[in-house]
């Protein structure tokens, strides 16, 4: 028996690499590259710059970023109010906020968005401001607010009690203590989870596609969807691949940022 433990480990590792390489080679050989290029990366015979990218970026991506920013700002404001209500000494405020958070966290965002854009006009003949997109965004804000409320509440509660005590012992009023001492520290704690929330919202704006929008109000997914049946790459899935790349161009840096912020925070705590 000349096989040491180390040799065996090496053997296992080599086998794993060989299997992986074989799988990749097999896939490359089996794949029908012309068909793949035809369906997923087809410029329609015209230059890429004249093709889908223009509308995908100047309309789709720009609107996606804009809608995300609106939904995030709205959700943050709503979430802050809800978080403060949940921590209020007045019990009915706590009940209301808890009920709201539990209700909207338990629903698909899409249901709320359709309700705002379609359900409300049917029921009351009233359309929220901003047309269909505006209504959808309000729905998105209502749901995002519920999630952010929980994040913010956790952040506020993570600020040591001694901070409040120090401020109150100096004679600062509860409101001033919250605004000047507790919230600045809470926000620092919740920056990573809030950035995560932002990434989730970027993806949730794609739901707006289901509500429909005017041509120049379309977000990225809607633009890509329309290019499935029109434009140079019509009849192929190319525009979806392009949209996917554009989404990743926004989300990947942000998720890296979150990872970096979390690493930095872990260091700062020490």
């Amino acid at each position: 028996m000349g096989v040491t433990r180390r040799q065996r480990a090496l053997l296992v590792q080599t086998t794993l690499y060989v299997v992986l390489a074989a799988a990749v080679v097999a896939l490359a050989l089996v794949a029908d590259w012309p068909v793949i290029r035809e369906n997923f990366w087809n410029s329609g015979g015209i230059g890429w710059a004249d093709g889908n990218w223009g509308d995908l970026i100047t309309i789709g991506m720009v609107n996606t970023v804009k809608y995300t920013a609106i939904a995030f700002a709205g959700g943050l404001a709503l979430g802050l109010v809800l978080a403060l209500m949940r921590l209020s000494p007045v019990a009915p405020y706590r009940w209301l906020a808890t009920a709201y958070v539990e209700f909207f966290r338990g629903l698909p965002a899409l249901v709320v968005m359709i309700f705002m854009s379609t359900g409300l006009p049917i029921a009351f003949g009233w359309t929220p401001p901003g047309g269909t997109v505006g209504a959808g965004l309000i729905g998105l804000i209502m749901v995002a607010g519920a999630y952010m409320a929980e994040t913010l509440r956790a952040g506020i509660q993570a600020v040591p009690k001694g901070q409040t005590e120090a401020a109150r012992s100096l004679g600062m009023r509860p409101g001033a203590t919250t605004v000047k001492v507790v919230l600045p520290q809470a926000f620092r704690i919740v920056i990573p989870p809030l950035t995560n929330e932002f990434v989730l919202l970027i993806k949730d704006t794609a739901l707006l596609f289901l509500l429909g929008a005017a041509a120049n109000e379309r977000e990225l997914t809607s633009v890509a969807k329309d290019f499935l049946t029109s434009g140079p790459s019509a009849g192929t899935a190319t525009s979806l691949i392009q949209a996917a790349l554009l989404y990743l161009a926004i989300t990947l840096p942000l998720t890296q940022l979150v990872a970096w912020l979390e690493r930095r925070q872990r260091k700062a705590v020490r």
């Binding site: 040591p160 005590e165 100096l170 001492v181």
Partner: peptide, 14 residues
Amino acid sequence: RSRIGMVFQQFNLF
């Protein structure tokens, strides 16, 4: 309270 200074064991600086 503003007339009663307080110093804590854990300092509690901001």
